[in-house]
Simulated scan of single mutants.
Amino acid sequence: MKTSFDSVSPRARMLLALTLVLGLAALAPLGGASAASVARGLLGAAALGGLGWWLVRRGRAEHRFSLTERMRVVSRTGLSQRCGLALVEVDGSRYLVAFGDSFAEVRRVHTPVRCEKETGS
């Protein structure tokens, strides 16, 4: 049987547990609890609070550097039902990959060099 508590995220559950522990620790002196019990409750609440803060902060952590794709398929086409040709870019270099059921061949694509026309005077 599904309850409405099943759809709550683990982070929200942790914050709810922290709130309940802090509430119990605050109400403990009213029930005639000893100072040692109150200290244990506060220590437990601080530990749960630190864990909850760490979980919330870890979920929002941003990457300090961006991860770039090391390999991507620029284009791909089929030559027949069992063969294909792909242009793949790996770390800035381009490769032509011919592949099939039982083979694959990789060739580096050399970028063409542009030469400017010389104008004679």
Rank of each mutant, 00 (worst) to 15 (best):
R70I: 09
C83E: 15
L96E: 13
V73F: 03
S102P: 02
V113C: 06
A46F: 00
G23F: 13
R60P: 07
V88T: 04
G92D: 10
R82M: 00
V38L: 04
S34N: 08
L22W: 10
A12H: 10
L30N: 06
V113Q: 13
L85N: 00
F103Y: 09
R57K: 13
V88S: 00
L79A: 09
G84K: 00
V106H: 11
C83R: 01
C115E: 15
A39H: 01
D91H: 12
R76W: 03
A46C: 01
S9C: 05
F65N: 12
S4T: 09
L42S: 07
S80I: 00
L85K: 00
G84T: 03
A104C: 10
T3F: 09
E69S: 05
S4E: 15
K117E: 15
T77Y: 01
P29L: 11
C115M: 13
E62N: 04
V109L: 15
A98V: 04
A104Y: 10
A47K: 00
A28N: 01
L27H: 05
A12D: 14
R64H: 09
E89S: 05
L96H: 13
L42D: 04
A45H: 01
F103C: 00
E89A: 12
H110Y: 08
F99V: 01
M71I: 07
S7M: 06
L42E: 07
T3Y: 11
P10V: 03
R13A: 11
S37H: 05
G32W: 08
A39F: 04
G84I: 03
P112Q: 14
L20A: 15
D91K: 09
D6W: 14
S75G: 03
P112D: 13
G120M: 07
A45D: 03
H63Q: 08
L42Y: 04
E118Q: 11
S102I: 08
T111M: 12
Q81I: 02
A25I: 02
A86I: 02
